[in-house]
Amino acid sequence: MSNLWTSGSELSSSLFLQRDASNSGQLPTSLWLIGQRYELPDHHFNVQENMLEAQSEDMQQIKQLTEISDSSDQTEPKTRPSPQFSMSLMWPPDFYADFTSRLWMTYRHNYPPIRPSNHTTDIGWGCMLRSGQSLLANALMIHMLGRDWRRTKPEDPSWKEYRKIVHWFLDELSPRAPFSIHRIALLGKQLGKNIGEWFGPSTISQVIQ
């Protein structure tokens, strides 16, 4: 299955933070995500700076331990240390829950070939195709589950609908995946785009339609 959902490690403040016009030159005071505004606490940037520093120390320690482990002749299975850093602590909880509930499609490889080509990856040419998938997937989620739905309770009956939407975007050419990269690439071929050729905004819009 594709990496169809986001993880906290993909969060970047530069993608979401916006300066209010009235506070030009000052630090941003809010976050926006698909039309939803989230207020930032006053201490947000201090917390962010401290957390990033802690993460840097964790990663340095992991690197050192890994180098020591790799240089040894141990025959027992190696266990990699994991950082104690949690990206969720850097963001307002309600924003983080919203962000990690959005569907995110990105490049992938080693899926079944997109026939009649031999392409088993969309790395380097599938950016607009994946952007179109992400746009469509989140529009379907909002339409079917509502803007306030969150991916926090797998036991919730709404997860059945969520899983159905995810399956629609699997990387395969089959009836259960009508919005797969395979189908999009083949529809693009009907519009004059060869499989493996970059789409423009107009092409992906026509394919989605």
Rank of each mutant, 00 (worst) to 15 (best):
H109D: 15
S69Y: 01
W149V: 02
R183S: 05
T120V: 10
D20P: 00
S174K: 13
G200I: 05
T203P: 03
D20N: 11
H119N: 05
R130A: 09
M141D: 00
L40G: 01
A185Q: 02
G192A: 12
I142Y: 08
F179L: 12
M105S: 07
G35I: 11
L135S: 09
S202I: 10
I62E: 02
G196D: 09
S56F: 13
D122W: 05
E155H: 12
G196Y: 10
M87T: 08
C127L: 04
Q209S: 12
G124Q: 09
A97T: 06
C127V: 08
T6V: 10
Q206C: 03
I195A: 07
N110K: 01
E155T: 15
L40K: 00
Q18R: 13
S174M: 06
F199E: 11
I204R: 03
Y111N: 04
D73T: 14
Y162R: 05
F85E: 05
D42T: 07
R150T: 06
Y38E: 02
S88P: 00
R150Q: 13
I142N: 08
D98S: 08
G188A: 11
F16H: 12
W32H: 11
T79V: 14
V47S: 08
W168N: 04
H43C: 07
F199W: 07
I123P: 00
Q36G: 06
T6M: 06
L187W: 05
Q74E: 14
D156S: 11
D98C: 07
D122S: 02
I68Q: 15
M87S: 10
S69L: 09
Q55K: 15
Y38P: 00
S14N: 08
D122R: 00
S71E: 15
Y111A: 09
I114H: 04
M141R: 14
E172V: 03
D122A: 02
H119Y: 12
G200M: 02
E161S: 09
T120H: 04
T29K: 06
